[in-house]
Design a protein around this nucleic acid. Structure first.
Lengths: 194, 194, 194, 194
DNA sequence: GATGAATGAGCTTTCATTCAT
DNA sequence: AATGAATGAAAGCTCATTCAT
């Protein structure tokens, strides 16, 4: 894909995030996305096989960014507890800078099947993998002893996403520090038995 | 509404939960709900003004049940900490006995606008009201000191919903005790500073 | 049909005139007619085979009244010119006293086929028969000499109906004398070559 | 609208006249119009917002043609009596060349409300305006003295339309001259007091 | 490669009619 | 005889997708 194409591809992705985020998959029309991207309806189909492929590409794209962002900010040589703290902070940071995509993401996190399901699950897995990895390290190091790491991962993700969602929905601001502080107070010290 | 009608009304509601739960609002056709309920397509419209009204009635109905269930199992004369534990347990209990509605509920909890939004928000408020009430008592009694009770409420709800969602999605069973235990270990002792 | 039935039959007919007149055939629902008549929807079907039969019965009923009214006020022993004047006046008189049915009638006079067509045509024929009869007498007596009596009849009917329609639609009052006067001035003296 | 579009637009309008004329508004399905026009159902909606808009466009289109035709054949410098004669003849001429639209028009002239009403009324006004203008000139010049010009206009229109309708409905031919002659004999000499 | 006119499957909703009560 | 809940055929309309330009 040459530069010209890449730019148009991005414009469509961004327009998609925008509209999908506001209206969800079924309420969004391809025409609307095309209009927002400033391209013709047919052009969208030159870049994406169909509406669903566009949707999936948006999730893929965003997830890749999120996972990369979290991974990059992770220092594997450090204390796993600090790694977990850092990972949560990174997620909130990312959310703060990609507000629209993240509302979209939180929603789709609990979204419906159709074949979208697979993609959402792929996100679950990639996202959870990081946290599982950290939590396993914690467990190995005896920092805590929980049977169901998956439930814990889901719980942490749910707490983080849900808090973020709350601020996105009902507040104008998104104060990363305060949100993080609440989450930390909510379960951090506990997990690691202060 | 006489007995005959009430029975048919329930059949439609239940069919609706079933299908909406599996497919979401837009992928569900009224015809399918009618077929599942064993009634004619037109009959659905004798009981509900339109597809949306059916959807809203389902949420309404389910929320009422959930909130009642949690309220009824709550003993206001007891320690707020115990109340919170009991409330979370009640939610998980309810989930265990209304699996399909709850998947539906968790999903719509993060759902999209259209006028459905209002109904979902109504749920948010009713659900949160209980937890806010308990958490405020905790705060008043000095059990902990968190600035953002709303964030905390959202976080707890998110953790509970997300854990439940995980089990619903990826497991056959729904072991209330184990799930509860994980949640407790996740932040309970912490909140109340053991 | 006993008295009880006859009364209900009339109530339905009258309700039908009312609603059909305001909304036309396709925009009127049987339920609405039943409600207006103060009977159940099923009852309408005890008196009329279906919606169309009700419609036809209304036309039949009204036409019979109109034709009878005109016939009764006709004195066959008198001058055909006076008979024509009298007939037109009778039509306007009837219109004045059955405003709603007449708006309905004028409209259906030019209405669409479906099988209603036959009924409308039946009206055409009965209505025209009177005027044809009078006009033929005029012709026989040499009062005028027009080739196309049918066109003439249609023209007179059209002029009368259209004038009436105009007053019904755009005015509150229905001044029979003034309307008649205009019609007379429009072609009466001419026809009879004053 | 380029040539390609204009041609399709016309095909739809013509198909619409055809079907609406035979069946009326409510008995006509958009699909049928589309089929008759040789286009897809959706295409109709690319050219007209909805069924009603198509209907209105058809009336608009036809009225414009009729009014233009009558206006163009009118010589304002001539005797108003001759103008009236000419106008009536023009209407009949137009009818002769646009049989289907005119049946449609005559019917809708007496049609039912819904928002179509406004459009029909617009036609009334435009059509009547021409005749009113002529009749006023006649009155000013003392050619006759009738109080209710509106009733007269309605009467003339009714007579013309009704005569035409009669021939359209019950005869194969449409002999403009004979019809005109009957109308003239019906009231022309009379109006202008021979 | 970019476009948007054309398309028809598929949806929601209405309502005449039936029939068990 | 009177009723109105139940029904499903049928219609208007949308929109993902195709394809000729």
């Amino acid at each position: 894909m040459d530069k010209r194409n890449r730019e148009k591809y991005s414009r469509i992705i961004n327009a998609g995030v925008n509209i999908f985020m506001r209206k969800g998959f079924y309420q969004t029309t391809v025409e609307e996305v095309a209009r927002e991207a400033g391209v013709g309806k047919g052009t969208v189909y030159n870049y994406f096989a169909n509406k669903e492929a566009l949707f999936l590409a948006i999730i893929d794209d965003g997830i890749e960014n999120l996972v990369n962002y979290v991974e990059e900010s992770r220092d594997k040589n450090t204390d796993p507890r600090a790694q977990l703290q850092q990972a949560i902070r990174a997620v909130l940071d990312f959310f703060a800078h990609h507000r629209e995509f993240c509302i979209f993401l939180v929603r789709e996190h609990f979204s419906y099947s159709h074949s979208l399901r697979d993609q959402v699950e792929k996100f679950h897995q990639q996202h959870n993998a990081i946290f599982r990895d950290i939590l396993e390290q914690c467990k190995e190091k005896g920092l805590f002893d929980l049977e169901y790491l998956d439930t814990l991962t889901a719980g942490i993700t749910g707490a983080v996403f849900s808090s973020a969602f709350y601020w996105f929905m009902f507040r104008e601001e998104f104060p990363v520090n305060k949100i993080y502080q609440t989450i930390e107070e909510m379960f951090f010290n506990n997990l690691f038995g202060e």
